[in-house]
């Protein structure tokens, strides 16, 4: 377990890793990655019981699935900084012969990744499967997921939500990154999501809302509430309200940095806002 200042320092380093990875290959998705940095840093360093020596089956440890695979820069940084693979490997992001593919995959054997994601809407189903396997194995650990809010437009999510609610898959906590943005504009402009709390509750879930999804203490409080609600015959959903591009002022509050890399000048600006705390790769 880490204190809030340690986690903040790690977030600052993770933000540097994100913008540096994306800048180096002039491609990738910085906006959503930055928005979820506090959440994933807190999850991996304060909440989950996990083993960086990495076993694919994940028996007797908490397991995380990134369903919105395009925010790969943040999960790569968080996994590397947690000891799953060498931090210097972040320099290979999106390059030929790398284990750090544009979207996360098991295909090149990257420790920490248990399923490919990128084509949206599939992670909740996979999480249900692992949650069911844990029950069969008498394994009392938890399955966590992260989804984009735009991703909820995929029909498979609601097949999975219906199954989990109807079958009391209560060892699974699914977090929705509610940043209100997607590629073509705001979620309201593209395809309005409506009342997500009511939707998940109608599917038989317990719902926790974290209004300050970029605040580490608020994330900790929300996660603890979610964990306290788990194992009570209902799946648990966290509506995590985040700011896309958080921590880099010129990227915040807009969908425009969903999938665009910063240029040299913008990189320098972004790095000046986020001190190097643990050493750049």
């Amino acid at each position: 377990m880490a204190d809030t200042q340690q986690l903040k320092d790690l977030v600052s380093q993770v933000r540097r890793d994100i913008v540096r990875q994306v800048h180096a290959v002039n491609s990738g998705h910085p906006g959503g990655s930055l928005g979820c940095a506090e959440f994933l840093v807190t999850l991996y360093n304060d909440i989950m019981d996990h083993d960086p020596s990495f076993n694919m089956d994940g028996v007797n440890e908490d397991v995380f699935y990134l369903s919105n695979g395009h925010i790969s820069p943040v999960i790569y940084s968080v996994l590397a900084r947690a000891g799953y693979f060498p931090v210097k490997e972040l320099a290979t992001f999106r390059k030929l012969n790398s284990r750090l593919q544009g979207h996360p995959t098991t295909h090149e054997g990257l420790p920490g990744i248990r399923i490919a994601s990128g084509s949206l809407g599939q992670g909740m189903s996979v999480a249900i499967g692992t949650a069911l396997a844990k029950k069969l194995n008498g394994d009392d650990k938890t399955v966590f997921t992260l989804h984009g809010d735009g991703e909820l437009q995929e029909g498979q999510i609601w097949e999975a939500a219906m199954y989990a609610g109807s079958n009391a898959v209560d060892n699974m906590i699914c977090t929705i990154d509610v940043n209100g943005q997607q590629i073509d504009g705001s979620t309201d402009q593209v395809l309005a999501l409506g009342d997500l709390r009511n939707k998940f509750e109608a599917f038989g879930w317990d719902v926790v809302t974290v209004e300050k999804g970029n605040d580490i203490d608020a994330i900790k409080t929300g996660m603890k509430e979610a964990i306290s609600l788990s194992r009570k015959r209902k799946p648990v959903c966290i509506l995590l309200h985040t700011e896309m591009g958080n921590g880099v002022d010129f990227m915040m509050g807009s969908h425009k940095w969903h999938g665009v890399a910063p240029n040299d000048e913008q990189l320098a600006d972004a790095l000046s806002q986020n001190p190097e705390t643990l050493g750049d790769y």
Binding site: M56, G58, R114, Q122, V126, I128, G129, A131, K134, D139
Partner: peptide, 9 residues
């Protein structure tokens, strides 16, 4: 998807 997830375990 559930089938894929069940293999992990």
């Amino acid at each position: 998807g559930i089938a894929a997830g069940l293999t992990i375990g």
